[in-house]
């Protein structure tokens, strides 16, 4: 019997498609990559509550209000499982929140765009959640157990949200002329930011060799983007809406659509903090966190007193 080589054991597990669990040995860079990715994902869920939450008090029917409120609550729930999954890798919620609130951590750039009309609630559910699912579906089989399990539940709920978003768009697209105009305007504004969600073109994408080796990623940005456009076009046509892209057309040879690239300069600007709502989103998260400080302190102080009383008894 020789000394166990942990690295070899880890590699062999990956090779066999085995799941890595929190107590298993794992290389530092695997751990770091996952902490970064899972916490960013959690932050995206939490910040993502804001643009849709913007319409809760103005939802135009009681049913729509219930659906939207439940949806925003689901996003918060996703944030919670993901923070917990990240904590199993040895970080803490406070550390992650601090990174978000100080602007050190990233979250999905799409949430730095404003929701200007009720149709935006539909467009976000349908397109943004649709794009997120395309990115996330492969994560259900990712190598890290707690992340994979969280993603199974999240993907289920996201597909439900996507259908609800599309349903909302259907009401508008087949509604009054003003409603249809609202739907078209939302699609015009969300189309390119949604395409950006798949990340920069493959030629410019930093090498994601590790992510693929670790079964964190299985398809490239461009492949996923193409698949998203192919999937969305029939849905858009059914609604009688159009995409804001004159170059978009079916290409029989590749059995897919040709389409224009989003404006990558805008993409970089938004990532750097210059999107329409970056500052507001961060300010909003900070405000809630700061205003909630005394609540958290009270809960801690109360729990401490209870423990003291219990020990004294």
């Amino acid at each position: 019997m020789g000394v166990i080589n942990f690295e070899e054991l880890f590699e062999s597990k990956l090779a066999k498609n085995d799941i890595i669990e929190p107590k298993d040995w794992m290389p530092d860079n695997y751990r770091k990559h996952l902490i970064r990715q899972i916490s960013q994902h959690a932050h995206s869920e939490i910040v993502g509550m804001l643009p849709e939450g913007n319409w809760i008090t103005r939802a135009p029917s009681l049913r729509a209000k219930l659906v939207l409120l439940a949806k925003v609550q689901d996003e918060g729930g996703h944030g919670l499982y993901l923070y917990t999954a990240a904590e199993s890798l040895g970080t803490s919620r406070d550390e992650m929140l601090d990174a978000l609130l100080t602007g050190k951590a990233k979250y999905s750039s799409i949430f730095n765009y404003p929701t200007l009309t009720w149709a935006d609630v539909g467009a976000v559910g349908w397109l943004v959640d649709g794009a997120a699912i395309m990115n996330q579906v492969m994560l259900q089989r990712t190598s890290y157990g707690p992340y994979a399990r969280a993603m199974v539940r999240i993907c289920k709920e996201e597909s439900f949200h996507q259908r609800q978003g599309y349903e909302l768009m259907t009401h508008l697209a087949f509604g009054t002329p003003a409603q249809k105009e609202m739907a078209q305007d939302a699609l015009n504004r969300w189309w390119y930011p949604t395409l950006m969600m798949f990340g920069p073109p493959d030629v410019e994408s930093p090498n994601s060799e590790n992510a693929i080796k670790w079964r964190i990623k299985r398809e490239t940005n461009d492949e996923l983007r193409q698949r998203f456009v192919n999937q969305s076009m029939p849905q858009i046509e059914y609604l009688g809406l159009t995409v804001p892209d004159k170059n978009l057309k079916w290409n029989e040879t590749k059995k897919g659509y040709d389409f224009s690239e989003p404006d990558w300069t805008e993409f970089k600007a938004v990532i750097k903090g210059n999107g329409p709502c970056n500052k507001e989103r961060l300010a909003s998260r900070n405000k809630s966190h700061n205003e909630g400080a005394w609540v958290r302190e009270a809960a801690t102080a109360y729990a401490k007193k209870q423990n003291e009383n219990y020990e004294a008894a």
Binding site: I46, I56, L66, L69, V72, Q73, G76, K287, V295
Partner: peptide
């Protein structure tokens, strides 16, 4: 529901939203 997304911490945000629902 005005609290949704603005609660003092995540668990409480979810709890109050649940009550609103």
């Amino acid at each position: 529901s005005e609290w949704t997304g603005h609660g003092p911490f995540l668990e409480e945000d979810l709890a109050l939203t649940n009550i609103a629902l």
